[in-house]
Simulated scan of single mutants.
Amino acid sequence: MTDTFAALSDPTRRLLLDRLSEKGGLTLSALAEDLPMTRQAVAKHLAVLEAAELVATERDGRCKRHYLNPMPLAKMARRWLGRFEDVPLAAMAGFHGAPGAVQVART
């Protein structure tokens, strides 16, 4: 799961995942289109995503097509976010250390 968090920490990699979420089966050239970096830089980002198993690839002749693999994201959501789904908001309202929380003066 550490690989997943590390892969998601970069905004370019998140953008690549967004593009693959919208339309799978994209080639490196299609993914690199309109990005302010070289195809080689995009390929390095894709390698990180592949190592984290967030992207699966398939050979199509000479082309390599990339697809979003949602399983690591689903596992992360269940493990890290799922536990907060049933937390009552009233219980969190008493937490004064949250950024932007209203401080109530106690008398």
Rank of each mutant, 00 (worst) to 15 (best):
V102C: 07
L17H: 04
H66S: 07
K64M: 11
L49E: 01
T107P: 15
W80H: 12
L49M: 04
T2R: 05
G24A: 05
A47F: 06
F5G: 01
A47H: 04
A7C: 07
M76T: 11
S9I: 06
A6H: 06
M71E: 15
D34P: 00
L73N: 02
A98D: 05
G24N: 13
V48Q: 13
A101S: 14
A91H: 13
T4M: 02
A30Y: 08
G25Y: 02
A91R: 11
H45K: 11
A91T: 12
M92D: 02
P99R: 08
G61Q: 10
L20A: 02
L31W: 07
Q103I: 14
P72N: 08
A77V: 07
A43E: 11
A41F: 01
D18T: 05
K75F: 13
L54A: 02
H66R: 05
K44Q: 14
R78K: 10
F84R: 01
A47G: 09
L16P: 06
G97P: 02
G82K: 13
V102W: 12
P88W: 03
P11N: 10
A90E: 15
Q103L: 15
W80T: 04
A74F: 00
L15P: 03
T2D: 14
L35V: 00
L17D: 07
A101K: 10
L15Y: 10
R78V: 10
F5V: 13
T38L: 03
R59P: 08
M71W: 09
D34Y: 01
L26W: 04
W80G: 00
K64W: 09
T57W: 11
C63E: 15
A98S: 09
K64D: 13
A105K: 10
A98Q: 12
T27C: 06
G82F: 07
V87M: 12
A93G: 08
G94I: 04
R14M: 08
L28Q: 04
A77E: 15
E22I: 01
A101T: 07
K23N: 04
P11I: 09
V87S: 03
A32E: 09
A6Y: 04
V102T: 13
R65E: 11
T57L: 12
L15Q: 13
P36T: 02
L17K: 03
S9H: 13
R78E: 15
Q40T: 12
C63H: 15
A77S: 11
L17F: 02
A91N: 14
M1C: 03
V102G: 12
R78W: 03
L31Y: 05
S21Q: 11
K44N: 15
G100S: 04
T2N: 08
M71C: 00
N69R: 06
A41K: 03
E50A: 06
L15W: 08
D3N: 14
M37D: 00
F84C: 11
E33D: 14
P70F: 11
G24V: 07
G61N: 10
R106E: 06
R78M: 14
A7Q: 04
D18L: 12
T107F: 03
S29D: 12
D60R: 12
P11T: 13
G25E: 02
R62F: 09
N69M: 09
T27Y: 02
L73D: 04
E53W: 02
K44G: 10
A47K: 07
R13Q: 07
D18R: 14
A74Y: 07
A52G: 01
Q40I: 09
L28K: 07
L16D: 05
S9E: 14
V42H: 06
Q40H: 06
T57F: 11
P70S: 07
D3S: 12
